[in-house]
Amino acid sequence: MTRLLEVKDLKVRFRSDRTIIHAVNGISYSLDEGGSLAVVGESGSGKSVGMLAIMGLIPNPPGWVESGQALFKGRDLLKASEGELRLIRGKEIAMVFQDPMTSLNPVLPIGLQLTEAIQTHLGLDKNQARERAIEMLRMVGLPNPAQRIKDFPFQFSGGQRQRVMIAMALTCTPSLLIADEPTTALDVTIQAQIVELVRDLQKQLGMAIIWISHNLGLVAGVVDTVLVMYSGFIVEQAPVDDLYEHPRHPYTLGLLHAVPKLDTENQERLASIDGMPPDLRKPIVGCPFAPRCPYRQEKCDQQTPPLFEVGPQHQSACWRWQELSKISTFGEPL
């Protein structure tokens, strides 16, 4: 397989009230053509910002890319000019955002919002673009696309709007789709439909996908590789099954432990990880997870752990990854 995207040591900073927020702190990962990757982490872990950065969509001011490389088909996106990026955005890399209620322009008919990208990138005329838009809407399962193309976003339900957003992202058949929590704002049943839809479309169109989510359960069935982020660091990266079965980082363990299960006999209180994520206004010394980690040692406070190779394609940033194989639940003594 050919490498589609390779991100190396990406660092993103924001300025806020004379302090600097360390939002993304040197993340590296890669994605093959047609591959799928999930970036999992809690709010503020830098998962969305890391993706917006490679698309050049970080508003500056207040944010900027401090360092790093993002090679897309061999080209460094972080060094590309705005004009070059414009030709890549929407055509090569498309994005579906979290909230379909606010991500569509409320005063423009959806047809126009679809065709403008088609006309910009594919050079089709108005009628051809309209045909293409209808075809895309049909593909994402929107009923009566030819009539509904004239409607405004407020005339659609949340799930329908997200379908429109997906159609919009896929109009130019991008080689990479970044789905930034596309189901968070939707009902659970609709969530499943949208996940299913994106997965089918990925197979159909053969594109690669990066799925940003805070829901480990949701991404389990849709991706090959999972990347766990915590306070701007990648703490663990592994093929999906391996990660669920043999987590090698206490944070991943804690996250898996916090997923509610329907099949447990005794309805126990849902486990949570005590404490709060670190303050990103200060540079992090040592392991970012150390203050909340039950397995903390002196070394953890002083040295930031590198990503250790802990198995085939499996990496963990924990000093005690070897010992962690002995336990299966978070908090269990080593």
């Binding site: 955005r89 929407g90 498309a94 991500s103 569509l104 322009n105 423009l108 403008e116 990208a117």
Partner: peptide
């Protein structure tokens, strides 16, 4: 600051189109 302006940028539209069509109209 609205999400739909980010969507418009993510679509790779020309800056003028973003400003006139998406920003000014609203």
């Amino acid at each position: 600051g609205n999400d739909y302006v980010r969507t418009a940028r993510a679509k790779g539209l020309l800056q003028n189109v973003i400003i006139l069509r998406h920003v000014m109209r609203n």
